[in-house]
Design a protein around this nucleic acid. Structure first.
Length: 207
DNA sequence: TACATGATGCCCT
DNA sequence: GGGCATCATGTAG
């Protein structure tokens, strides 16, 4: 699996977050950890549009925290939220323009025992409770702001975190409103694989 | 320097 | 289905 998988190039991310979001479905998010691989298939994402999107961290312009969003595409934007959780995003667009994709859920593929342990769950934990949410998947892959914010995701050689294409693509994509935000709540910018068992909470537009 | 808030998850009822 | 932990960041004062 890993041998055939190729890291997605920067050009993949250098475009509209809505397009990047849809194209990221079924790709692999991979962590290399002292010789071991932790990997999950991306099954749910959300697009954040930059300065025109009131719900985006970049809405009020560049700050110290969100600087990665204004840099080159294909880099990790990781932030700490609610005093407990990390959220993992990929920067999009050209340098100078914000915009990103939040990865909200993964289908566990590789290193499942390790991911389960990192989540503090029993080995018998159901597979669909390991990485079905942005905070959960960050914990499962050991993603933190300190370790990963700003990291280049386009190379498996120079980074221990990247996104790979192993040839899969979703049969059907469901589009819904985004989850957990208070501004621009109605925009249809959440995308998930139809019928997938590993997505977070709401499997349709209702919540 | 102080304060309000949040792209969540878990536990309780 | 609802309450709440917990803290980094940004903005106001």
């Amino acid at each position: 699996m890993e041998m055939l998988a190729q890291a997605l190039p920067r050009a993949f991310y250098s475009r509209d977050p809505r397009e990047v979001a849809r194209q990221l479905l079924s790709k692999l998010l991979v962590r290399s950890e002292s010789g071991n691989l932790l990997a999950g298939r991306i099954v749910e994402v959300e697009a954040y549009m930059g300065e025109d999107d009131p719900a985006a961290h970049s809405a009020a312009g560049r700050t110290l925290r969100n600087a990665v969003l204004f840099g080159p595409a294909g880099h990790a934007y990781v932030y700490f939220i609610y005093g407990n959780h990390y959220c993992f995003n990929v920067s999009c667009m050209q340098e100078g323009q914000a915009g990103c994709v939040l990865v909200r859920a993964l289908e566990p593929v590789e290193g499942i025992a390790e991911m389960t342990a990192r989540r503090g769950m029993a080995p018998s934990t159901s597979l669909n409770n390991i990485s079905n949410g942005p905070g959960k998947l960050a914990q499962a892959l050991g993603i933190t702001r300190e370790r990963d914010n700003g990291k280049d995701l386009t190379s498996a050689e120079s980074s221990d975190l990247w996104i790979a294409n192993d040839g899969y693509s979703p049969e059907d994509i469901v589009t819904t409103a985004r989850v957990g935000i208070t501004k621009a709540v109605a925009l249809p910018l959440r995308f998930l694989i139809r019928g997938n068992l590993y997505v977070s909470g709401p499997r349709n537009g209702m919540r």
